[in-house]
Design a protein around this nucleic acid. Structure first.
Lengths: 212, 212
DNA sequence: CTGGAAACTTGACACTTGTCAAGCGACAAT
DNA sequence: ATTGTCGCTTGACAAGTGTCAAGTTTCCAG
């Protein structure tokens, strides 16, 4: 009986703790999302905790309460960003019934991303570069990189499938190609080069048929 | 006669000024080179003028004497870096008499670069990302990017030439591909992944025959 | 209702940052 | 010999940084 009580109490305690954890985590994500705003605007180098706080509804102390560290906060941001980013093209892949449909859907989404999410993406490239200096970032960054490679691979696989062909390239090379083109286009787009996006789209359109 | 004198005096003055300018510029490059050491070690975000000075034979004041600004210094660093980097593969291209020679020379140089100049290259990727945030960097970064694209194109052109074939890809796509692969390998190499370099070389070896 | 833990704010700390004015010796011109 | 410019050093300044301890509010279990 006492044992049963103890067991029940423990279960309750565990449930409470789990709830607290969940709340804690939800708050962390809220804070990370707020931080991403400022990080996307200023970049890693120029962003301070205080600035993040000022551009949000929170005080700078909360960030220290929820994150052990500035790096901890930014790691959380990166991880959160990943979840959003990696599934971006899945719907296009799932719904396309012909090769043309996939191509056009993919291109449209690329253009939209470049136009509307430029700040988030430059942050990604910033953080990926930071990972070359800061070991604390590496694990997360490498993992995201892998996910992005897989994402590109899913698109390419479907692209080949729709023409009953086999891909002629490796996942790594395909990702390098598209990521490199995207990165270049992003830089030129941010530099107010009006031709950046259309030329990028043309390039992708030309490249796609060569992958299989 | 007076006119002649004035003309001569002016020429002397001009020569003196030119000499001073040259000395001034030489000093700037010395300082930039010293700064590159620290920048390559710490990255843009964590590097301060004082730290640069401490890791060099100069005092922090000199940097302010020769550069109007921190950005001015770093722009000079970037420009100086470019000159060194862009001709790296030219000798291999010039000396290769067969396709295999070119392939092996290229791969060897790539591996050497990755192993020995990793710090300089991570700085390049760092600064390219910074250019997405900092307009002051953009002009130089875009120019270097173009030079690198041209460098890759020279290699590829020769590669096609040696087999009397035509390249099947655009300069932009080729650069994106190799730069993307290189960047990924660099990150993994810096993360102490022993397989990064060999796998990268394998990948390049597999990719090369597909470009024409 | 109440005590106490959790969530959050505030202000202060030690330190670093870019910037720059004041001063130093060397050296060339007068 | 003096003056003044050049190259450079030094030290100080204000503004900002991450961090954290102390205090305040909120909330809920007993």
């Amino acid at each position: 009986m006492a044992r049963q009580m103890a067991g029940a109490a423990q279960r309750v305690a565990e449930a409470a703790e789990a709830l607290r954890d969940e709340k804690f985590n939800a708050r962390r994500i809220e804070l990370a999302e707020a931080a991403l705003e400022t990080l996307g605007e200023l970049g890693f180098a120029r962003t301070s905790l205080r600035e993040i706080a000022q551009n949000s509804a929170f005080t700078h102390g909360v960030f220290h309460y929820y994150f052990s560290d500035k790096l901890d906060l930014i790691c959380c941001c990166v991880r959160h960003y990943k979840a959003k980013c990696v599934t971006r093209y899945d719907e296009v892949v799932a719904s396309a019934r012909t090769r043309d449909e996939l191509t056009e859907g993919f291109l449209a989404k690329l253009a939209m991303t470049l136009r509307e999410d430029a700040r988030m993406h430059r942050l990604w490239y910033d953080l990926r570069s930071q990972a070359m200096f800061e070991p604390a970032f590496r694990k997360d960054v490498l993992e995201i990189d892998k996910s992005l490679e897989a994402m590109v691979w899913r698109i390419a696989t479907r692209y080949a499938e729709l023409a009953r062909k086999r891909l002629a390239t490796s996942p790594a090379a395909l990702y390098a190609l598209f990521d490199g083109l995207f990165q270049g286009a992003l830089l030129r787009h941010l530099a107010n080069d009006e031709t950046a996006i259309p030329e990028f789209l043309d390039e992708v359109r030309r490249v796609l048929p060569t992958i299989c």
